[in-house]
Nucleic acid binder design. Sequence first.
DNA 1: ACCTGAACACCGTTCAAGT
DNA 2: ACCTGAACACCGTTCAAGT
Lengths: 216, 216
Amino acid sequence: MATQSSTLVKPLGKQRILEAAIAYADEHGVEMLTMRKIADKLGCGVMSLYNHVANKEEMLVGMVDIVAGEIELPQVNDDWKGSLRASAANAHKVLLRHKWAPAQWSLRMPGPARIRYMDAILQVLTEAGLEPKLVYSGYHAVTMHIIGFTLQEIGYLQVLDADFDELANEFLKELSGDFPYMAEHVRAHLNEDCCGSDEFGFVLDLILEGLERIDH
Amino acid sequence: MATQSSTLVKPLGKQRILEAAIAYADEHGVEMLTMRKIADKLGCGVMSLYNHVANKEEMLVGMVDIVAGEIELPQVNDDWKGSLRASAANAHKVLLRHKWAPAQWSLRMPGPARIRYMDAILQVLTEAGLEPKLVYSGYHAVTMHIIGFTLQEIGYLQVLDADFDELANEFLKELSGDFPYMAEHVRAHLNEDCCGSDEFGFVLDLILEGLERIDH
DNA sequence: ACCTGAACACCGTTCAAGT
DNA sequence: ACCTGAACACCGTTCAAGT
């Protein structure tokens, strides 16, 4: 009855594969992502995937590029700092939806959406009138912050829910003796006041305002 | 002749395993690292490794911690910015020796050497007299920069030697049309002047001097 | 206490065959 | 043009057996 020609069977296609892969990685982490698992999820054989994707590496590149495409591009207006701040905050939100992405971001070839995104950031810095050297360094500083800060945050979140009990009990006590500053920092993390404040934005402003000041 | 009791056969031990694993990852990348490859390198059976290491995850944690131990701790003196700058520069150098490390750093449980390192950075910031909120944020900013910047740099280096021809030829030409700012940035990267300048230190100073200024 | 081979339940990917 | 099962060369890890 439900033959292959049935309209109920959606065609495969690269887009549908990447979306399934992203959904799986969002839920289970990228280290659990498997060609076979994606195939199962899509209800097809493993090898069918290879009609639309050269290999797993290309798939990961495609996945990262879709995430890059979800980020709102910074607007080109007279408030370059505000524009970058808004876009970075959005990127931060998107990356926290796809916790596997930051670790993949820097290490893989950029796809078209990511190149588009990089270009937009550079355009804002250039159009702001910053001198070339500051456009160059400012770009590195801003993108490093978006990926690096979020990666660190995700790492912290993962360590947290991996073993919160050991951390809060044995860990913090043993820490206090040998590493008092570390213990104090962990205590600050566990406090509500610190989590409430916009750490991501605060550090980004350190960078943006530093750039503006140097540029006279 | 060469029996098991021969003194020529070094005992295994966790340290020797981790060193072999690090040497292999330095040379071939962490994605090529395999329990079997380490065993081959050490001239023992795969399962012998499991007498000293619980599993691959614990091995990676141990590898990262050895790298953390190679970093010179920042000194506690009256020049907190200079002290952090020197330590960060050293960390940068160490991480470039172990290009697989930055991607592992944030995502895995910190070992004792890394905790010692984190504590030292926090101590310098605290002893500098910065207010608690700035110690908290400054720590995140500095560590994010060390790992994030280096990770981005390593990604760039890998993309570079992966296909430098495609990049310089087809890539840059196609880029110039749709993404002029990106093309300009790539051109700046390929110029000698930019690589000569200490980008890592420049962006770090943006952060350190920002912290000092806010602290009045 | 330390070592180890065989075996298990997986991987990504090639290949040859189907429609 | 698209799909697919069987097969291959690997993985990490368990287990039972050795010393």
